[in-house]
């Protein structure tokens, strides 16, 4: 039983770390702000979620497990909200995405 728990925990930690590192690499390599935000927003929340689930398998008693559940819920709630607000603020303030050539004549519509 312990071996299965340890193995599942290690597997979840591994997936989470892979997602986080890919998000970090994407942050450095993508060409534009909106693409970077897409990379960070998705992998950040999911990677953090997997790492926290992996840690739950290692927790010795119930109070720590409950606290990890709380951190997980908080991260799942807060992560996508931050991405949404950041994108909305950037769009409203005029930062245009780098589209294909010939499409850059779109004006921003500030009534959304």
């Amino acid at each position: 039983m312990d071996v299965i728990l340890n193995f599942t925990g290690a597997l979840c930690l591994f997936i989470g770390c892979f997602l986080c590192i890919s998000g970090g690499v994407g942050l450095l390599r993508f060409p534009d702000f909106y693409t970077r935000m897409h990379a960070v927003g998705v992998t950040d929340t999911l990677g953090a979620g997997m790492i926290l689930i992996g840690l739950m398998f290692y927790s010795p008693d119930f109070l720590i497990f409950a606290k990890l559940v709380m951190i997980l819920l908080l991260t799942l709630l807060v992560g996508p909200t931050t991405s949404h607000v950041l994108a909305k603020a950037a769009m409203r303030n005029g930062l245009m995405p780098a589209l294909e050539k010939g499409d850059n004549s779109k004006e921003i519509n500030s009534s959304n």
């Binding site: 709630l77 807060v78 909200t81 949404h84 607000v85 909305k88 959304n112």
Partner: peptide
């Protein structure tokens, strides 16, 4: 109304 998502999340948090 521009930021409905944020208001609801704040009310929960």
């Amino acid at each position: 109304e521009q930021n409905l998502v944020l208001r609801i999340i704040t009310k929960i948090l």
